[in-house]
Structures are given as C-alpha cells and as structure tokens.
Write a protein that binds this DNA or RNA. Structure first.
Lengths: 118, 118
DNA sequence: CGGTTTGTACGATAGACCTCGTAGTACGGT
DNA sequence: ACCGTACTACGAGGTCTATCGTACAAACCG
C-alpha cells in the first residue's frame, strides 16, 4: 500500500518552474529531438513505444523522463500505457515561437542531411 | 617555428557542418546563454572579457570555444584580444528564427526571474 | 628589452549524462 | 488466478562536461 489511490502520479514542473536552459538541454539530444518531432507530428497523446528509437527501452524511458522533468512534455498513465504529449500551451506562453522554430529547424536539417542522420 | 605565418587561425565548423543538436547543446548552458545574450546586445565584435561571467578565466575560455565549435559564434584574433560575434548570417540561414526566439526567450525569462537568475 | 594585457594549454577533479541489462511493478484480459 | 503488455527502478560502465589553478604564449606599449 505504497500508493493508496490507484492513479499513479507523475512529477511535472509547474509552469513557473520551467527553465529555458533546461528546455534547451532537453532538446539538445538527438534521441529526444526525435521524440519531440514525433509528438509534434502526432499532434495528440501517444504512448511511449509509438516513437521508435534506436536505443533500449530503459534508455527510452530515461529520455522521456528528461523531457517531462524539463517541462517539454506531459505524461500520464492510461492503463498499462503511458501517454505523452507536448506541453505546447505552456511552452508557447513562456517562450513564444521557440518550439516551432526548433521543430522547423529539425525538419530542415533532416531534409538536408537525410532522414537517418542524427 | 611551429606556426609559420603570424596570424593564428581558429577552427570554425563550415556552414554545412553546423548541427542543430550541437547548437542547442551550446545554448543549453546558463553561462553560454549569457555570452550569447551579451553578444546579441553588443551587436558588433567584442572581446572575450567584455562579457563578464562569474567563473574563472579558463572556464570562460572553455565556453567560448564550445560556442565557436558548435557554430554559434565566430572568433578572430585582433592584437592581444580575441574578438567574438554571433554567426547570425549562418544561423539564420540554417535555422530561421531560432536565434531570435532563443534570445527573446532568454530575455523574457530574465525579466520573469530577475536578472541574477541562471 | 621589460612589463602589461589578454587569452591558451594542460592537468586534475567532481559531477552529470547516455547507455545498457536485469529485475520488478501496474494494469488489463482470459 | 494467470499471463502478457508496457513501462520503471536500480546499478554499472564509460564518456563527457564544468570548473579550477598554474604555467605559458602572443601582441602591444613604454
């Protein structure tokens, strides 16, 4: 009886706690950039394994946590799955245009270097 | 006679070699973010010690090098000084809007948290 | 030439980070 | 109750990073 209520809770930074340096650090990893691009394309909540990464599952979990703890994504449990979505509202309010320019930059670079480049 | 010509040369990544993840990583450090903001405010070339950082001089050198090697700034020697400027042209061409949105985000966050916050 | 200014190189240290495998937990279905 | 799915927690390994101090180099100024 460690968690009384059935719903497991996940620690997210509050709106005021989101730091630009943390967000940039979260986005500065190729794997996490892939995740963010994948979530942007999806548009809605997707579960963790929906974004395929060339790393082990525990590493994937690690990256999702970094993204959550920096304020880039929101995570919630739904059954056995864990759903992920971009914190677009908060990010756009805090740092207008940042997410979109990063996504556009990632898209451009992918087109320039080929889809398989880091 | 290790360096034949008098002008010391500095290694910069070519335009095509600049990687988004590297740029984001360079910007993801509070000290380097300060440097970038300082250079943006200056608008022109400034020497290394023009941007005051609460770290030792050798650490400062380290951060300037990271910024140069990621393609964020351009460095050149001028007498005993080393001049620094943003690579605005290249960054804007590669990742339109990225630098400006990051600068704006940094400015907003500084206003929100106070000028002394990381 | 001698001194000053400006920044570099090197080595060290402590902490963070990415990656993995294994073992375990929570939930849903049969 | 049992099993499968989806993800986590923990510990470990190897690499990278930020920081520092000291010693050094390059250019300028008398």
């Amino acid at each position: 009886m460690t968690t009384p209520t059935g719903a497991r809770e996940l620690a997210h930074p509050a709106y005021e706690e989101i730091r630009l340096a943390d967000v940039l650090h979260a986005l500065a990893d190729p794997m996490r950039l892939r995740v963010v691009c994948g979530l942007a394309v999806a548009g809605t909540e997707v579960n963790c394994s929906a974004v395929e990464l060339p790393v082990s599952k525990s590493t994937s979990t690690h990256h999702f946590r970094v993204l959550r703890e920096s304020g880039v994504i929101r995570q919630s449990y739904r059954g056995t799955a864990k759903m992920n979505e971009l914190r677009r509202d908060d990010l756009d309010a805090l740092f207008p245009g940042l997410l979109d320019t990063v996504l556009a930059a990632a898209h451009r670079q992918k087109a320039r270097l080929g889809p398989d480049a880091g």
